[in-house]
């Protein structure tokens, strides 16, 4: 294993470790936070930080594994495409969940600091 590949390997493993940290933080948040909107925030943390960073880590790690031949580029491309799709879909999904819960008044909004929607700042 050459030195450049060792660097790739280290960066990939580091990204996976950071991603697992985000997963744990998101899990604690989902269990501990008081209201639906705050729990949704914790869910987004673990979805973006906990799935996109490890996928990028696997992509970089696969570039460094030279003994896999050209197969490693397939793994890299698959990881990057999954990152793209998750980056589009995860925020829009949590957005539509939050919007539905807000408009239908089914989830309690307390604790609440500032509600821009109720003052007509951004009506959509």
């Amino acid at each position: 294993m050459s030195e450049l590949n060792l660097v790739f390997y280290g960066i990939g493993l580091g990204l996976i470790a950071i991603g697992s940290f985000f997963e744990v933080v998101g899990a604690i948040g989902v269990l501990k936070l008081p209201s639906f909107f705050l729990r949704l925030h914790a869910l987004t943390v673990s979805c973006i930080g906990g799935s996109i960073l490890p996928l990028l880590g696997v992509a970089i790690l696969a570039i460094g594994l030279e003994e896999m031949g050209s197969q490693r580029l397939f793994i890299t491309a698959i990881c990057l495409i999954s990152v793209f799709i998750i980056l589009i879909l995860a925020p829009s999904g949590s957005h539509s969940l939050a919007r539905a819960a807000y408009n239908s008044n089914t989830a309690p909004k307390q604790p609440l600091e500032y509600d821009a929607l109720s003052r007509g700042v951004n009506k959509d």
């Binding site: 799709i85 589009i88 879909l89 829009s92 957005h95 919007r99």
Partner: peptide, 16 residues
């Protein structure tokens, strides 16, 4: 339907 953000995201995913 739902908001414009969700519609646009769906529009990107459907061809895939």
């Amino acid at each position: 339907g739902l908001s414009t953000i969700t519609k646009t995201a769906t529009k990107i995913v459907i061809p895939l």
